[in-house]
Nucleic acid binder design. Structure first.
Lengths: 107, 107
DNA sequence: AATTAACATCGTAATATTGCAATATACAAA
DNA sequence: TTTGTATATTGCAATATTACGATGTTAATT
């Protein structure tokens, strides 16, 4: 039914899945990679760089912001989107914990 | 339009996003965690454990298999699903490389 | 051979996501 | 104060995902 039954899972499982999900789109991967290669990020650059419409990019940026991965600062009439390094590191740790604690052999 | 324009992105970006996407559902996180806590895995156990219908679990298992994260072996009339540790480790490394190379400060 | 058990697959309904044009907003420059 | 620039939001169409009942398949059990 296209609806995820989140109430069946632990908060940890839902959180983890949400991080994965937000990262699970190539445009969002590309946006993060591009931002990390710049000193500052201006959204319009992204439109040229990624090749999706401005509205679409804006939407993807919003999703990345929603899990705290990006900070957006207003700079006059431009926006400066930056990776939230602190948050980034926390999420990386959580994902690694998941990978390290879920690796066991069975057969 | 609900369709991801994969042709706009690099293969690496698409691959990475695909891993994230497959892991981006709490049922699939829960399945992996449950399997790793067992010695062997039988799908019917999962139906009881996770609380989704048998058909749904089967579908999720298929997606995890599709990126090589799970191996499925037939054992008589049962299935033994196991984490593919080699693949698991490769994917973990790729995700970590992404995280480590995409962390730079801008503002 | 019929039955049962353990999945897999198909079909389908409900909902979510992706993408964009159009429009709104906010600010700076002229 | 009008104009242009940068970004956000809205509305909508197309497609994808999630979930499950029904049905198929395969193998052990009777």
């Amino acid at each position: 039914m296209g609806i995820t039954k989140t109430q069946m899972f632990t908060e940890q499982q839902n959180d983890l899945a949400l991080f994965f999900k937000v990262l699970g789109h190539p445009a969002r991967v590309a946006i993060l990679q591009y931002i990390s290669n710049q000193n500052a990020c201006i959204c319009n650059d992204l439109v040229d760089e990624i090749g999706l419409a401005q509205a679409t990019i804006s939407q993807h940026l919003k999703e990345l912001k929603s899990i705290g991965l990006l900070n957006g600062e207003v700079e006059g009439k431009k926006m400066c989107y930056c990776i939230n390094v602190e948050r980034w590191t926390v999420i990386q740790k959580q994902l690694n914990t998941f990978f390290n604690t879920t690796k066991s052999n069975c057969c």
